[in-house]
Design a protein around this nucleic acid. Sequence first.
DNA 1: ATAGACCATTAGAGCGCTCCAATTCAAAGT
DNA 2: ACTTTGAATTGGAGCGCTCTAATGGTCTAT
Lengths: 341, 341
Amino acid sequence: MEDVAERAKVSRALVSLVMNNSPQVSEEKRESVLRAAEELGYRPNLAARQLAKRRTQTIGVLVDDLRNPFFGEVVDGIEAEAANHGFTALILNGHRDARRELDAVETFLQFRVEGMALVGPRVGDDDLARLGGTTPCVVVASGSAHPGVDTVTTDGRWGAELAVEHLASLGHTRIAHMDGGSNVSAEERRAGYRSAMQAAGIGDFIDIRAAGDDEADALDVIDELLSAADPPTAIFAFNDLLAAGALNRLDDAGVAVPEDVSLVGFDNTFIAALRHLSLTTVNQPTLAMGRLAVETLLTRLSDGTDEPMRHTLEPQLVVRSTTGPPPMQSSGTASGSAEHI
Amino acid sequence: MEDVAERAKVSRALVSLVMNNSPQVSEEKRESVLRAAEELGYRPNLAARQLAKRRTQTIGVLVDDLRNPFFGEVVDGIEAEAANHGFTALILNGHRDARRELDAVETFLQFRVEGMALVGPRVGDDDLARLGGTTPCVVVASGSAHPGVDTVTTDGRWGAELAVEHLASLGHTRIAHMDGGSNVSAEERRAGYRSAMQAAGIGDFIDIRAAGDDEADALDVIDELLSAADPPTAIFAFNDLLAAGALNRLDDAGVAVPEDVSLVGFDNTFIAALRHLSLTTVNQPTLAMGRLAVETLLTRLSDGTDEPMRHTLEPQLVVRSTTGPPPMQSSGTASGSAEHI
DNA sequence: ATAGACCATTAGAGCGCTCCAATTCAAAGT
DNA sequence: ACTTTGAATTGGAGCGCTCTAATGGTCTAT
């Protein structure tokens, strides 16, 4: 910067003004500075700028799992909105592990990010509240109900209800739920499943199995479910990945979907839309969630409210081909008719 | 930091030493500093540290597309290895667009990252070389042959050859290639396709269609292919996503895979492994690529070679159920027999 | 007893920038 | 001619840390 100033025959301060394109610089000087910078390949040092400005214009984005396309979509939304406001999004990966998430948050804090978006975090509510005290922090995930933290969520309870209602209306009674394990969103979806089962008058059949959020997590659970005394005719899975894993295993076992068993996922990732899976699922408006997360953060930054802000978006059932009426009562297992929607 | 020093009754310098856990601090003082820091909730300011240290211990990771699970896997590898060496990985998203990639690189440079890993970049070779001059830079992608830049790649040419040889050995002659468009890896795969076609003595049938690297990019191309005078009996797609899109469209058109048309993808993402797609594809060792990328960067940092380093990994054909022998010569279109592997 | 060696500790300069207050200069007002 | 105004420019302090060289202290060798 020193050099640029010298070369352009101006003071360092003026260079700074040009670099921040302040309006009160004469066209003449501006150009000469820009030229000098160009010639010397000068690039402002972000660390120094941040230090001097006492601002970083950066938000931290903690992603649970980069392999799940759902998160990729949310992050896309966050990045787009952040860029709109001149913010840079710093992406860190939680690797589906609470301890590593905490490390990542620690890194964010050292970076002095102005806000953090935790996308599908696994850290406990207590840690969350503690963090939120220091730096604005928004939890993005369906069905998080964290006290004292801002949240952007798709109504997971409602989403689960949509799924169960759909299955119930097709005539299913034995509907099982493969739940999300330690995933934050798991609880709300579980609750939705429960309430919808009750509402449909089939509360007696409530069957919740601890699974997870990855295809591999589905395998054992499907085996359990199939070998149960009274196997379900429909399964509501925590997310699309889990549902995909279920589909794999059901196929292995020679169980036809949806003829023998109906299956519903969650997230409406592009995987669900693949024709060969054609998974009935519950849509989350990922892009909107991302954008809203950033907006929330910015509001929090300027605003001084204590009230936690909660944005809840509407889920939407997307019916595809993995759901249909249950097999005839008589025929206990495979073979079922093909008359689905 | 001032406050911590005061509280622990030591100098600022000592606090700094403790924070960098220097060995030459007495146990007594170390503890008292740590305690003071804890009590005050002190957290070192990374920007200040970087500025003073003249090092950032950070590498930039530019990802082409966060929705494609392939990239997620590579990034996982990068992050793991970076962490091993005390580096933080800064992830930025290129959004499949060369201009935005350049912006991201600019950001990296301002951050003073010590190295950059460009995962599946789209920027031109000239820009690449220019960047590489400033900051160590490794291109991670299958089949990149960028002059003057370090690369970690899976041999895309070979991978393509494996795919074509497999199809040819099944008896296919009319094998088309849906290529990767502006994706860096496209050219090598194209070349591999060409050479394998020649080698198999079916060079006359070479048919390359510009497609892309996203499911949506497949649609039009499939339509074209199907309505051609002499439609192919096999298609080698640039990547799994494209293949998945192709699968969708073929299904729409009532074309059976692999009975009527065989299909091969690339990347071996988890999508390909889904039982309902069960896509024959070419594996890339993603994790190893990520790790190797970081190693390359670190070598470049310590070493002073001018020679560009090129790591080329072996692709591997993964045969699943989307490939089989071509339909009987006689039956021109749909219906084909079911005798596949 | 004195010099030398060695350890833990500290003062203080400096990293590359921004920003405030101060300065310069030209044009306008009286 | 003089002050007033305002825009363009600059000097310099300071952001929070690290690092070098210097300081004080303790211990061993002579």
